[in-house]
Design a protein around this nucleic acid. Structure first.
Lengths: 148, 148
DNA sequence: TTTAAAGTATACTAGTTTAGTATGGTATGT
DNA sequence: ACATACCATACTAAACTAGTATACTTTAAA
């Protein structure tokens, strides 16, 4: 269960949809276009607005739009907007969440691993999703280098 | 909630403990040494044995030991042994798990992202955990290279 | 200035998943 | 043969998630 919440997945779907449309779109349209239930889409849009991923306009003729260009929105941004900070383990959300903490030998390691994963997700953007996956984006070309 | 299950965390704790001891150790000793409840440790040890991480010996004077040297056991190995294959999203566990699948534009992307994360976790081993985190292990030195 | 479209906020519910436990079985060295 | 230690399975309770319902606020156009 190293997994992402369904809502985060939907969030990315919505972000991707908005990038494609590139104009003001209403909640209902988004819901129809992504096949996500309207009520759920509403909830998600709020998260995305609060997270600065999406810009909203209220009132008649209102709607949503991406707040920034696609290449500037990473997967990590979307996940964090929907689910809060990425924390693989409890101890990574701060002290006092795990009763094993005082004796645990892995705390620093988990912190480190958490950063590895987060940084990795920051290199992959909405624009990369839009492009053909068969030709991996630049961000996907990683090389492991022996230290020293 | 991009997070790892508590049991996977415990699994890593146990693996790390076994690496430190480097000898035949009983369930009770492991439980005492890691502060994990005995019944839970049993369950985990089964997973680890099935996953080929740990070797068991039954009968009198039985116990557990790492099946392979520390540097050959990655975080990904441990997580997969405890939780099964890494799958960030439902669609990454195969077809038919998500009702949005037929219309979803993100399937290939998720598959790609899943691999990115998994590969990253494969580069970090038990041995890396044992060493001082303040001097990051070789596996942690990653360089992103512009494609073409 | 009224009205209706559209976003905002909060609280609740049902279902699923997870961690944890209990119990009885099986192998094996002495 | 027997005590020790691992193995297998099934169950339970608690936590968490996704999804929904409802009432409110903002704003552009008529």
């Amino acid at each position: 269960m190293l997994k992402i919440g369904r809502l985060a997945d939907y969030g990315l779907l919505i972000a991707h949809y908005l990038e494609q449309r590139a104009e003001q779109v209403t909640t209902e349209e988004i819901a129809r276009g992504t096949f996500i239930p309207v009520a759920t889409a509403r909830k998600l849009l709020k998260y995305l607005v609060d997270g600065g991923i999406v810009a909203s306009r209220r009132g008649l003729r209102g709607g949503y739009q991406l707040a920034r260009p696609g290449p500037e929105i990473s997967i990590a941004d979307v996940i964090q907007a929907v689910e809060g900070p990425i924390a693989l383990t409890e101890c990574n959300r701060g002290s006092g969440n795990c009763e094993l903490e005082p004796t645990c030998a892995l705390r620093d390691s988990w912190s480190f691993i958490n950063d590895l994963v987060t940084d990795r997700l920051k290199t992959f953007t909405l624009a990369d999703i839009a492009s053909d996956m068969r030709h991996p984006p630049a961000a996907a070309q990683v090389q492991v280098v022996q230290a020293k």
